[in-house]
Computed example of a mutant assay.
Amino acid sequence: MSIFDRVVDRVADAIEDVAARARVPASIDFRNETNSSIIVVMDSDRESHTIAPHGQATFGQANVADAPTFYVKNESGVVIYSRRVGPIGAKGSYGWNGSTF
């Protein structure tokens, strides 16, 4: 490994360390624009909300620069859609229309 590669690795490690220590909370509003209840899960159960028809929930366990995956489930708990978003800012907003967000 060259000296350049070692320096780049150390800088990358330092940046990752600073980012891990400086977690800045993010707020993500998620709207259900359909006539059916849905369950929305962020990152394999980091946070989950059941959202009533035409309702809204706020996800607060994300951090700025995260790139979470959201899973939309029907009332039976079956995943009907998933999408990775991000990196996110301090505030975000998504709306489920029955086929995408």
Rank of each mutant, 00 (worst) to 15 (best):
I3F: 15
F4R: 15
F4V: 15
F4W: 15
D5W: 10
R6P: 12
R6T: 14
R6D: 15
V7C: 14
V7R: 15
V8W: 11
D9K: 13
D9H: 12
R10Q: 12
R10C: 14
R10I: 13
V11P: 00
A12G: 10
D13F: 12
A14E: 00
I15E: 08
E16A: 14
E16K: 09
E16C: 10
E16I: 03
D17M: 07
V18E: 01
V18C: 03
A19S: 10
A19I: 09
A19C: 10
A20T: 02
R21E: 01
A22I: 02
R23I: 00
R23L: 05
R23D: 02
V24Y: 04
V24T: 08
A26M: 07
A26L: 08
A26N: 04
F30W: 00
F30V: 09
E33C: 10
E33G: 10
E33Y: 06
T34S: 07
S36E: 11
S37W: 06
S37P: 09
I38M: 03
I38K: 03
I38C: 00
I39G: 01
I39F: 03
V40D: 00
V41G: 01
D43G: 13
D43K: 12
D43E: 11
S44P: 11
S44C: 15
D45H: 12
D45M: 11
R46T: 12
E47K: 08
E47T: 07
S48E: 06
S48W: 11
S48Y: 04
H49C: 02
H49Q: 02
T50M: 08
T50G: 04
I51V: 04
A52K: 09
A52T: 09
P53T: 03
P53C: 01
P53W: 00
H54W: 05
H54D: 13
H54G: 10
G55E: 05
Q56H: 12
A57D: 05
A57S: 03
A57I: 07
T58K: 05
F59I: 09
G60P: 14
Q61M: 14
A62Y: 06
V64E: 01
V64P: 00
V64D: 01
A65Y: 10
A65C: 13
D66G: 01
D66V: 09
A67Q: 12
A67F: 10
P68R: 04
P68I: 07
T69G: 13
F70M: 03
Y71G: 14
V72A: 05
K73F: 07
K73L: 07
N74R: 04
E75L: 08
E75G: 02
S76T: 01
S76C: 05
G77P: 01
V78P: 03
V79K: 00
V79I: 07
V79H: 01
I80W: 02
Y81K: 02
Y81A: 07
S82G: 14
S82Q: 14
R83Y: 13
R83S: 14
R83Q: 15
R83G: 14
R83C: 13
R84M: 15
R84P: 15
R84D: 14
R84T: 14
V85I: 12
V85H: 08
P87I: 00
P87D: 03
P87V: 04
I88Y: 01
I88M: 02
G89P: 05
A90K: 00
A90C: 08
K91F: 02
G92M: 00
G92L: 04
G92T: 06
Y94T: 08
G95H: 09
W96T: 03
W96Q: 06
G98S: 03
S99N: 10
